[in-house]
Design a protein around this nucleic acid. Structure first.
Lengths: 197, 197
DNA sequence: ATCAGAAACGAACGTATGTTCGTTTCCAGG
DNA sequence: CCTGGAAACGAACATACGTTCGTTTCTGAT
């Protein structure tokens, strides 16, 4: 037996990536074996190497593509918002939450499996992440300068907001008690006005 | 060669746990091999089994003890605070941050390596974590009832606060630009009053 | 119609893993 | 002083891993 009738590289590659995403999300990168992955797609382990050169390259590809998609979709959401800092902040919050709630596996992997990346792979992802953080930091600084946000350390503020929002992906269940809209409203409120009465 | 002169079970066990903590923190639980761990402590791999029955039992022990310590030290901090909800909330925030900034490896492991636990081990840890979350949720509910915190979903609010605070451990560096005291002040402020001017 | 390359196969490589076993030496309680 | 258990050793087990190799078949461009 050899090449299978109807086989298509593009489609197989997509299947591998989808299955890899799910397996890494469930078991973790180190715990996922390529034999598992191959079985999930219905391939022999060796055949995976027609589609990526290395297990780590697969992981890096998944994270990289996720970060690129996140960056471009965030840019789109921001440019659709009103230009004042407060509107942009609200748009950022809503977009971050909605996007992340839709892409739980990707988000999980991009946050938890970074340490499995080595050297250049890691550096490239960290650079993308920094670009994303900078989008928020810039909004916060603009808001502080305009007097609509309380002055302070914009970087810490950005970290605090991102941690809080991304944390929501940890406990969110689509069948849960809250709709996505309510989650956005609550978090926007907490970020802007805090918990004090 | 066999039992080594001066060998002491209690001390060796402590060394193993300390080295395990560091290795898991650096490389991840799945990526840490028992041979690495044994070498770090100066033992043969087989000798580890005089101190724990299974690799997973080691992980579970580390997380379990961390959670117990966190719970009891939090209880102490709360009972030292004034009894009104706002004081208790401030005490909780300060204690969570200070404790977590001191115990970065433990916190990292307790949050990142949960998925390596199976069955009863996982259930036990999740129960402890729920108890911890409940400490904060109770404070928030008391504050809402007393009218010093804005009414809302106390559980979501607790998750949001915890994610934000724990996130600080990710980027905090002891040699960084901010002191621990400033970090506490900033986060308390953000939680209570938000970012809006 | 042909043929280069894409896409799969099956087998194997070397290595590493968690763990078990039997043995040996040291320590502490009677 | 003796002895049972504690704490280490070295060797080995079965298994699993990521990856390489050579081969075979199908596909798409010329």
């Amino acid at each position: 037996m050899a090449r299978i009738p109807g086989s298509d590289g593009r489609r197989t590659a997509a299947l591998i990536r989808a299955a890899g995403l799910a397996l890494i999300h469930r078991h973790g990168y180190e715990a996922m074996s390529l034999r598992q992955l191959a079985a999930e797609v219905g391939l022999q382990p060796a055949s995976l190497y027609n589609h990526f050169p290395t297990k780590q390259a697969l992981l890096h590809g998944l994270i990289h593509d996720h970060m690129e998609a996140l960056l471009s979709s965030t840019a789109a959401a921001l440019s659709a918002a009103a230009p004042d800092p407060l509107s942009r902040l609200r748009a950022f919050i809503a977009h971050h939450l909605l996007y992340h709630l839709e892409k739980k596996p990707e988000v999980f992997i991009a946050n938890f499996e970074l340490r499995a990346l080595e050297g250049e792979n890691l550096r490239a992802i960290l650079a993308l992440r920094r670009r994303y953080e900078m989008l928020l930091t810039d909004i916060l600084e603009a808001g502080m300068a305009a007097g609509v946000l309380r002055p302070g350390d914009a970087q810490i503020a950005a970290y605090a907001i991102l941690a809080m929002l991304t944390g929501a992906c940890t406990w969110y269940r689509p069948e849960g008690r809250l709709t996505r809209g309510e989650i956005v409203r609550i978090h926007t409120d907490l970020i802007l006005h805090g918990h004090a009465a």
